[in-house]
Amino acid sequence: MVSVQDVSITYRTTFERRPTMKDALLRFGRGQRAVREVHAVRDVSFDVAQGTVLGIVGSNGAGKSTLVRAVAGILPPTAGRIEVRGKVSTLLALGVGFNGNMSGQENVMLGGLAAGYTREEILARYDEIADFADLGDFIEMPMRTYSSGMYSRLAFAVAVHMDPDILLVDEALSAGDAKFKERAAAKMKELVGQSRTMFLVSHALSSIQELCNDSIWLNKGELMMRGAPTDVVKEYTKFVKVERNALTLEDV
């Protein structure tokens, strides 16, 4: 269903806080170039079959989010090829594509339309989304008034209700409260039960082991290991030499 073939992704960025013409001219005057390359993903290949719940583990900066964004079609690979069959819904770090000046309701509509759903499809799901996010009146308020937990609740609700063939989840619930985490975990299990294809990026190794039936481990952009979640988690924890218990959080 998803096939990642020899994919490398390189960021080319200027390490200025805010690129401006003034700085560019000044730099040009000094003959400098401020572009730096970050090889976020290096030559990674794997295939994922329909119904796989793939856990992705790795330390900070390992390239997990980058890889998931590439599968979602947001970042084009620098080299290699990614094939995806089916409709993708993303639940990436820090919310869906929300605009702070618009209400939650408007954002749900705009995000859905941008993702290629029709107005009717979104309206048909809207009540479920609002119910699941359970934000009360805040759904009508500008999103800049939301707390980060409220943000991620709405993002989670949108992603899981958009009925995708492939759901990409990148550290979705780090900010939700205990009650919501429980509900979200239940929802995730329900989705897993429907043999839907999922990518799950998480630092919560226990939930990787609990939910996933396959997993990969990335380190500094390279694919270190592919295999059963228990084995991968075991190797990964051995590698980073941290106590398993210290990482066993309830995040999804």
Partner: peptide, 23 residues
Amino acid sequence: MSNPRTVPQDDYLGEFHVYAPHK
């Protein structure tokens, strides 16, 4: 999902995406 699939089988669903470096 408890509700049946409401997404019509248009060309986007079941679509085949390929992401490769753009020439």
